[in-house]
Design a protein around this nucleic acid. Structure first.
Length: 409
RNA sequence: GGUGGGAUUCCCGAGUGGCCAAAGGGAGCAGACUGUAAAUCUGUUGCGGAACGCUUCGGAGGUUCGAAUCCUCCUCCCACCA
């Protein structure tokens, strides 16, 4: 049975930072119920990198909630806008991606949507379909609706101006392009991270000047990246991809700083605020060990994307390798060509580069000198060591990199 | 179009003829410690089987015994004026 307007509103509001404006959303919900017409919920994503990460999963999961409430989800893959590059939070112009790159990314992307969203209730669109067909005249008409001062209000642009960094003219077009998407799909609500505020509000302006009802902006919090400081983003590489292996997902989650745990519990694990509160208090009072809390968090995240069993074994594996300092159950095998050997021995530095554990001899030397290299648990500290290797021995560099050695050729 | 400022290693940024493979910070990597791939502390971060050598400071030339540093041209960026 359909939920009441107030119930829906409360569900939608859950976890959101801001709804602009709230009463308009209520009105839209009421109208939707009256007319028995689902709201059109828009979410855009630019395929600038091949993976969807936990940060983007936040608005996606919100989309899913709306879907479950019976609303219509319109996903816009920004194949066109990706070529501009969203200036949001960027202090630099983004390199424009090639068409092939974008297409390739879009493909892996769309496949990943259905991990979270219900495919049967989703409209998938590509904004190149309309933005790419506009004539220069169309563009001039649209840009005439917006003033330069209005665009330059954006804090990213302000900051760049203040820092005397370049701003490409095309970048000023980005908010307009995104806003035109809203016009095109006649969005009732657009979901985005708080960094999308400007773009989404621009959508409201343009819709109105096109004689449409303005969309409501639904802003979700940004998930901090693995560094705990910057937002999780593809370009910063501080992310957990939703298709990563259980082991990596768990491990990466364990590597976040303690301070951002609450944010992860709420945003990445989808835990209720009150429940998070209980954990935070438990940690503060010393009743819950921070590490246990983090293991729980990592398990929960892994479970969402890989299921209970995988989460459990990822946890066991983690404890085996890091808490008990044992070797992992699985590790890559590397084959070392036998022509690398001289008199049955191989120089340790060569072994490391051959196993691709170091990019250069210098790096390999450093690893050895710093005591990070072991073979079958035995530390190798002599840079000049000539090793006699047996098939199946385990080479380890640092805490994380393991390989089983195979001699080939 | 005019005037002035700028481009340095993964990023930021110091360096204005040799003491510069280039300070400092960030980030990464390693070690110690532990509570985890948290935090903290220490070390380390161009390439080469490395005593020594080789390639790097937007690009191309040039001056000099010697250039990131000086000169010429070029490319790109910023500010102000128009």
């Amino acid at each position: 049975m359909r939920k009441s307007v107030d119930e829906q509103f409360e569900i939608i509001k859950l976890g959101a930072v801001e709804i602009v404006p709230e009463d308009e959303l209520k009105r839209k919900l009421a109208k939707s119920e009256r007319e028995n017409r689902p709201l059109r919920i828009k979410l855009g994503i630019d395929p600038t990198a091949p993976d969807i990460h936990l940060g983007f999963a936040v608005p996606l999961r919100k989309m899913r909630q709306l879907q479950d409430l019976g609303h219509e989800v319109v996903l816009i893959v920004g194949d066109f806008t990706a070529s501009i590059g969203d200036p949001s939070g960027k202090s630099e112009t983004r390199p424009m991606l090639s068409a092939e790159q974008i297409r390739a990314n879009a493909e892996t992307f769309t496949a990943q949507f259905w991990i979270i969203l219900d495919r049967s209730k989703t409209t998938l669109t590509f904004n190149g379909d309309w933005l790419g067909k506009m004539t220069f005249g169309d563009v001039v008409t649209e840009t005439s609706r917006v003033t330069v001062a209005r665009i330059l209000e954006r804090d990213d642009f302000q900051k760049r101006l203040a820092e005397e960094r370049p701003i490409g003219l095309h970048e000023l077009m980005y908010p307009i392009a995104q806003a035109l998407d809203s016009v095109e799909v006649r969005a009732d609500v657009e979901i985005g991270g708080t960094d999308q505020k400007f773009n989404i509000l621009m959508g409201r302006d343009l819709q109105e000047s096109h004689g449409q009802e303005a969309q409501v902006g639904l802003f979700m919090p940004l998930l901090p990246g693995l560094d705990g400081v910057q937002k999780m983003s593809k370009s910063l590489g501080n992310y957990i991809g939703i298709t990563e292996s259980p082991k990596d997902m768990f491990g990466k989650a364990m590597s976040i700083p303690d301070e951002v745990m609450p944010a992860y519990f709420e945003l990445a694990a989808g835990m209720q605020a009150t429940e998070v509160e209980t954990i935070v208090r438990g940690i503060e009072s010393g009743q819950i060990h921070p590490m246990d809390a983090k293991k729980r968090l990592a398990s929960e995240i892994t479970r969402i994307y890989h299921g209970e069993e995988a989460a459990q074994s990822a946890r066991e594996e983690f404890e085996r390798v890091f808490s008990q300092r044992e070797i992992p159950t699985e590790m890559p095998e590397v084959s070392i060509p036998s022509d690398q050997f001289r008199d049955g021995r191989i120089w340790i530095v060569r072994l490391l580069t051959a196993a691709e554990m170091a990019k250069s001899n210098g790096e390999a030397r450093r690893l050895v000198e710093q005591g990070g290299v072991t073979i079958d648990g035995e530390r190798i500290s002599d840079v000049n060591a000539e090793m006699e290797i047996r098939d199946g021995q385990i080479l380890r560099a640092g805490k994380l990199r393991f390989a089983r050695l195979r001699i080939s050729g």
